[in-house]
Each structure stands twice: as structure tokens, then as C-alpha cells.
């Protein structure tokens, strides 16, 4: 395993991606969901900066949860108002994904990493991978509805990871 690869596909990002699988049935859904996740992540981490060095460490996760829940609520309202198509398709999974992606990636990542950099790297990785899976499932799903079933997301991700690992390992040896 190259160190470069480990940096991109760290556990927290992978955990976040698995949570977001529900939103990968097509590119449009994937793109809007991952952008929403990015907004939630970044704004939450921005506000977390206010508390990071002041509040007791044991309480930081509580603040993080409150802020994430707050941002999730706001984003869900925005979705309902301006993106009714996606609300029709995903329904309650929108707030579930929006809430659990930041929380799970936070729990899996290094302790107390509430920095903007962390939010940005997680979001960019999340957008890229989720959109890739979205494109693949969107194209293949037209001819084969089995690709649109939930388990297919894991298979597509597995293949994608294998390909990317291959590419990065090759680069290293070159």
C-alpha cells in the first residue's frame, strides 16, 4: 500500500462514502447530494472553529452533532423548496445521509480533527467518488436495472477502488 493512496482513501472517507451510497443512482442525484454534504461539512467545521480550543474536548462531539443536525435541517428545507425531484426520489434518506456522513467521517477520523482542511479533503474526495459511482450506475443502470439496486453500489465501489489502487501503485513504481 502506498502512502499516497492511504492519504486519499482513508477510513473516514470510505466510511462516509458507504453512507452516501443511497445517493448514487444517477449523476444528478449524486452531484446535488455531495454538494449538500460539502456545504454541511464546511459550515459545521467553520463554526466548530469557534469552540475547538475553548470547549472541553469531551464535549466537542456534542457541539458537532448539534451543528450538523442544524445544518442538515436547513439543507433538507432547501431541498424541499428547490429540488423537489430529489426529495421525491430519496425522501427521508436526504437528512439521513446529510447527518451521518459528517458524523461518521468525524468518528472514524483522527480525534478532534475539526479543521477546515479536513472538511475540504473529505468533501472533495466524497464528491469525486460519489459522482464517479453515480456516473457508472447511471450509464449501466439504463440497460440493467440490477445496477440500480443498493448492493450494486458496493460492487461498483469495489471495482473502482481496485482500479484506482492499481493506478496509484503503478505511478509509484514509475
Amino acid at each position: 500500500m502506498s502512502t499516497h493512496k492511504n492519504k486519499i482513501f482513508n477510513t473516514s472517507l470510505l466510511a462516509a462514502i458507504c453512507t452516501g451510497f443511497v445517493a448514487t443512482t444517477s449523476l444528478k442525484v449524486a452531484l446535488s447530494m455531495s454538494i449538500a454534504v460539502t456545504i454541511v461539512l464546511i459550515i459545521t467545521n467553520l463554526i466548530m472553529n469557534l469552540f475547538k480550543n475553548r470547549a472541553p474536548n469531551s464535549m466537542l462531539l456534542l457541539f458537532y452533532m448539534v451543528l450538523t443536525a442544524f445544518m442538515t435541517g436547513i439543507m433538507y428545507l432547501i431541498f424541499q423548496a428547490y429540488l423537489p425531484d430529489i426529495v421525491n426520489e430519496l425522501g427521508i434518506y436526504i437528512p439521513v445521509v446529510l447527518f451521518s456522513v459528517p458524523l461518521i467521517s468525524q468518528i472514524f477520523s483522527d480525534k478532534g480533527n475539526y479543521s477546515i482542511t479536513n472538511a475540504l479533503t473529505t468533501s472533495i474526495g466524497f464528491i469525486l467518488v460519489i459522482c464517479c459511482i453515480g456516473i457508472i450506475r447511471g450509464i449501466l443502470g439504463k440497460n440493467n436495472t440490477a445496477i440500480l439496486e443498493p448492493p450494486a453500489a458496493f460492487i461498483v465501489t469495489g471495482i473502482l477502488l481496485a482500479i484506482l489502487t492499481g493506478i496509484f501503485n503503478k505511478k509509484k513504481t514509475v
Binding site: P56, M59, V66, L67, A69, F70, I74, L77
Partner: peptide, 16 residues
């Protein structure tokens, strides 16, 4: 900080 947390929850609720 408990008080601040509760305050934050209230602020967030009002904003929502």
C-alpha cells in the same frame, strides 16, 4: 459549557 451547548441548541432551533 453545558449552558453554552443548550444555548446553541436554542439558537439553532430558532434559526431553523
Amino acid at each position: 459549557w453545558t449552558a453554552i451547548l443548550i444555548g446553541l441548541i436554542v439558537v439553532c432551533s430558532v434559526a431553523t
